[in-house]
Design a protein around this nucleic acid. Structure first.
Ligand code: ZN
Ligand code: ZN
Ligand code: ZN
Ligand code: ZN
Lengths: 146, 146
DNA sequence: GTGATATTGATAATCATTCTCATTTTGGAG
DNA sequence: CTCCAAAATGAGAATGATTATCAATATCAC
């Protein structure tokens, strides 16, 4: 039962003369089953449940491949391990992070997005993308005091 | 000739019962002499010219201290080594980075800054700060083609 | 099926940063 | 100024995420 993510990955691979392998299919399946912001490590754990023999290096390689194929996207991140999130049918957004409890809220702000376009133009840049993370204290943590 | 940066650092240290040391003074001096976005490594090199015996760990510790004291600030960074920039008398701004040549342009956009405040309020967050980096191709790189 | 080629998984290597700890500095009290 | 507890230092080891290496294996166009 090939779903559209697998179709998209296979199309991407074929187009570049790359191979559709057991490991890649397992990583994609694991990735699609996870939600939110996923580290290579949690993806490794999930992928091992599907294909116990899979190697860590392969997971690192494959999640990067998923990003190139437009199925995953790096989530803005300050410290520690890199995180990825679904990019297919999960449109662009930015993040609001609570410094106390780590809660992450996704948001999309039209005003900011269009102001960014203006900045690109102002400096003669051709836009590729952006990363923005707002940090603060969520309502709960603020109420509980610092 | 104590300048205001040294005064500020010493005040910060005294207030917290910490000591004003040769190494800390050397790192601050080196930092003030450098411009733009500084890595711990380049700061280490610069500090060694002032105090040849200084250790790398001390530079890492001290630049972090400078950030706490409000003299340095982390510059938004995707890969590789963390970078710091002057925070004292160098007001807040965000960055525009060319993916081809690495050029970094600093900018400040009032519209974005105030829209961020609105987002914080919308989600009930108490604002602490933000990191934003726009990536694209600078005029030169865009002209030369990809 | 065959073979050229891409991929894999185990392992070692990298590299920025942090930790450890014995030794040295600092700064306030006397 | 001297003494000393506390803080800081520097050398080197440790960490932890990510990459590189490479012999063995899997894939796929023919
Ligand atoms: Zn919170
Ligand atoms: Zn997200
Ligand atoms: Zn450029
Ligand atoms: Zn800057």
């Amino acid at each position: 039962m090939p779903n559209s993510e697998h179709v998209k990955l296979e199309a991407y691979l074929k187009e570049r003369g790359q191979k559709v392998t057991k490991a890649r299919k397992a990583v994609l399946r694991a990735f699609m089953e996870l939600e939110g912001h996923v580290t290579a490590d949690s993806l490794f754990a999930a992928a091992k449940k599907i294909d116990p023999g899979i190697g860590q290096a392969t997971v690192f390689r494959t999640v990067k491949l998923l990003a190139e194929a437009g199925l995953a996207r790096e989530a803005c991140q300050d410290e520690g391990a890199r995180t990825y999130e679904h990019a297919f049918r999960h449109s662009h957004h930015d993040h609001l992070r609570c410094e106390r409890c780590g809660t992450i809220v996704e948001f999309y702000d039209k005003t900011i997005e269009s102001a960014q376009e203006v900045v690109f133009k102002q400096y003669g840049f051709v836009a590729i993308g952006h990363k923005m993370e707002l940090t603060g204290l969520c309502a709960d943590c603020a109420r509980r005091g610092i």
